[in-house]
Computed example of a mutant assay.
Amino acid sequence: MKQEPTTHTSTALSAKFAEPVADYLEYLQRERGRSANTLRAYDVDLRNLGQFLQHQSQDPSLKQITVEMLRDWLAQLHEAQVSRTTLARRISAVKNFFAWALKHQLIDTDPALRLAAPKKERRLPHVLQPSQIDRLLSEKTEVTAGAGDSESAAESGPDARSQAVAARDKVIAELLYASGLRISELVALDVGDIDFERRTLKVLGKGNKERVVPFGKPAERVIIAWIRSHRKVLARQEAKGALLVGVRGARLNVRQAREVISKALESLGDTAASGPHALRHTVATHLLDGGADLRAVQEFLGHASLATTQLYTHVSVDRLRQSYRQAHPRA
């Protein structure tokens, strides 16, 4: 289900800063088609700068903001030990905002032009071994309900509801590994997005870009079981066509789905992998290990840049090197 993006500009900011930010967010929504998540991230980052300027008792108009002010803001973020990733994202948001302001003649010169983003930390993601995936997705493995659901399920009493929650949670785990979806993409799926004849999903990804993603027979089995026997136990009218439903009857939200997977991974007891993105990392690595073409994996994951997908080739090489050290007599 396509969600309508909304803006969240803080009213605590002065109009001199808040109004152009609101105009910029509207531009990103209407003309660039940015998602609600992207708009929220931009709003948070730009509001952080606006609040810093107000706290410094400067409260300048957009034209009065200088590169020195921006560097003072960055220095404050450094002192607060903000991570490199967050710092890079905030610098990018500010640079894009001022570039837009210059283009629309809201400022005469771009004060963010000379800001340099820190190099991002290149961390290899934790990847599950095939044996761990087998345990995670085994019919014998009980996948627990998310923290937001378990209490309500207990209150409702009947075994049918508990079985429905367990069946839904298996769909979450199977589909994340089968399709490599982002958790936000997973919870946005409608029943109508599934083509059982071709075993594919119609997915609305970042930037409202649509792609078609395949899934396998094990995922097909748990999806069919969920839809035929269990979904109706939980779903109410407000769920509409949602594939995944919470115990209160509405579409399952991202937090609940994330907690389902986090608890399931924690229950394995022998992996540092955590959260749903670990399954996305894992399926990408397993595809490349199995000989899949890099560009096919890029399309599968919905990456805008091939460079993002190439991270997983480093994971595969790292795994190969580790296996070589363990197995080769002259390693």
Rank of each mutant, 00 (worst) to 15 (best):
A278S: 15
T271G: 05
S267C: 01
L265R: 07
A284Y: 11
L268C: 12
H286W: 01
A292V: 06
D270W: 10
P276W: 09
D289M: 07
L265E: 14
T282H: 07
L287E: 04
L279Q: 14
D270H: 09
T271N: 06
A273K: 02
A272M: 11
R280L: 09
D270M: 09
H281Y: 13
A292L: 02
S267Y: 02
T282D: 09
R280Y: 08
A278F: 10
H281I: 10
L288A: 04
A296Y: 00
G291D: 02
A296N: 01
A292E: 01
A296W: 00
D289H: 09
S267I: 00
G275W: 12
A284H: 10
T271W: 07
A278Y: 10
S267Q: 15
D293W: 00
G291K: 00
T282L: 07
L268M: 13
H281C: 13
T282P: 03
S274Y: 05
A292N: 03
P276C: 10
D289A: 11
R295I: 04
S274L: 11
A278I: 07
T285N: 11
L265C: 11
A273F: 03
A292G: 05
H286C: 00
L279R: 14
D270S: 12
T282K: 08
V283S: 07
T271Q: 05
R295Y: 03
L268W: 15
D289K: 15
H281N: 13
T285Q: 08
S274E: 15
D270T: 13
A272F: 02
T285K: 06
G290S: 15
E266M: 06
G269R: 03
A292D: 01
T282R: 08
L265D: 12
L279H: 14
L294D: 01
H286G: 02
A292I: 06
D270P: 06
S274I: 09
L294C: 04
D289P: 00
L288N: 02
L294R: 09
A278E: 14
H277R: 09
D293I: 07
D293L: 04
G269I: 09
G269H: 06
R280N: 12
T282N: 08
T271F: 07
L294G: 04
A292T: 08
T285I: 08
G290L: 01
P276S: 11
T271Y: 06
G291T: 03
S274G: 02
H277S: 12
